[in-house]
Amino acid sequence: MEHGTLLLKTGLAEMLKGGVIMDVTTPEQAQIAEEAGACAVMALERVPADIRAAGGVARMADPSIVEAIMKVASIPVMAKARIGHFVEARILEAMGVDYIDESEVLSPADESLHINKQPFTVPFVCGARNLGEACRRLAEGAAMIRTKGEPGTGNVVEAVRHMRQMNSDIRRLCSLGDEEVANFAKEIGAPLEIVLRVRHEGRLPVVNFAAGGIATPADAALMMHLGCDGVFVGSGIFKSGDPAKRARAIVQAVTNYQDFALLGEISKNLGEAMVGINISDIPAGERMQERGW
C-alpha cells in the first residue's frame, strides 16, 4: 500500500476538474460554498482583496481557522503557504490539509527558491503565468497548476492574459522541430524532460485551473473556453452582494460554459459584483503575479 505518490497527488486534482474552488475565511462561508456545489474550498484568514487592502506581510492563516473549516467541510480543504516557506507547508500537511497552494497571494518567504514539493505526502498547486513557470513548478513537484491572474482585483484581464500565454507557449512548443526543443526549454527556463512531456501530450501533464480576478459566471465560462480545467474564485464570491447565489451561478457556469442561453439565465439578478480594480491602477511593485521565480 503506497501513500503520497505522484498519481495520488495529480489524481485528486483530476477529481476537481469542471469544478469551482472557493476562498473562504469562516466555517459559515465554507458551508455556503459546499452548499453551492464548490468542489473544494481554500481556507484563508483574509481573501486576496482584503490582503491587498491591508498591506504588510501576509502569512499562512492561523491554524485554528483552517482547522475550523476542515471540521465543517466534507469537500477537500486547501490552504496557502508562502512561496519558499516549507515549514508553513509542513505545518499544513501535519494538520491534514488536502492540498497546499504555494501562493503569490501571500508575501514570499524566499526570493529565489520555491518549496521542494517532492518529499511531501500532501499535494501542491502553484501559480504560473506562462509555460516556463509551470514547468519549473512541476519539476519541483507541483501536482496541479493554476494560472495566476491578478488576485483580489475582480478583473479577469490578467487571468485571460496568462491562460492565452500558456496556450500560445504550448502551441509554439508543439510546432517546433525536434532539434529546436532543447533551445526552447533553455529560453523559457524549463527542464527539458518536462518540456518534452508537454510536447508529447500537447498540454500540461497536470490539471490547470484559472485564478486571479474571476468575479462573474461569464468570467468563469470565458476561462473554460480558453481551455482551463476549472476555476478558483477568491474574493469574487464573498466580496459580492449575494455570495450564495453568485457561488451557485459560477458553479453552473463552469459546467455549462458552452450553453450561452443558460449562462444568461444564471447571470440574472446576482446582486452587486465585487468592486473591481484596473490593473494599471496597481503600482508595479504591488502586483502579486510578479511574485514567484
Binding site: L16, G19, E34, G37, A38, C39, I75, P76, V251, N256
Partner: peptide, 15 residues
Amino acid sequence: PGGESTAIAKLLIML
C-alpha cells in the same frame, strides 16, 4: 465518474 459527490449532486438538481 469520480469527483466531488456533493458538487455532482447539486449540479444534477440544478440541471
